[in-house]
Amino acid sequence: MKKLLFTMIAGALMISCNQNKKEQEEIAKDPNLEIHEKIAMANGFEEFDSINKLKFTFNVKVNDTLRSERRWTWNIKSDKISLTEKDSTMSYTKKDSLAKDKEYIDQRFVNDSYWLLFPYQLKWSNADFSEAKTAKAPISGDEMQMLTVSFPSEGGYTPGDSYDIYFDDEFMIQEWVYKASGGGREMATTWEDYEDFDGVKISKMHKSEDGNFELYFTDIYVE
Results as ranks from 00 to 15, higher is better:
L4Y: 13
L5I: 13
F6C: 03
A10D: 00
G11N: 04
C17L: 15
Q19R: 13
K21H: 05
K21R: 14
K21Q: 12
E26Q: 13
D30V: 02
N32M: 09
L33E: 03
L33W: 10
E34R: 15
I39H: 06
G44S: 03
E47T: 08
L54Q: 04
F56K: 02
T57M: 08
N63E: 14
N63S: 11
R67P: 00
R70I: 03
R71D: 13
W72K: 01
T73K: 03
N75K: 12
N75I: 03
K77N: 09
S78H: 03
I81E: 06
S82E: 14
K86R: 15
T89L: 07
S91D: 10
T93V: 14
K94F: 12
L98N: 09
A99I: 06
K100N: 09
E103H: 04
E103Q: 14
Q107G: 07
R108N: 15
V110N: 12
V110M: 12
S113T: 06
Y114C: 02
W115N: 08
L117Q: 05
W124H: 04
E131G: 05
E131A: 08
I139W: 09
E143F: 12
T158W: 14
Y166S: 04
D168H: 07
K179I: 02
A180Q: 15
A180Y: 11
S181C: 02
G184C: 07
M187T: 13
T189Y: 08
T190Y: 12
D193T: 14
Y194P: 00
Y194Q: 03
D196H: 05
K201C: 01
K201L: 14
I202P: 02
S203Y: 15
S203F: 14
F217T: 04
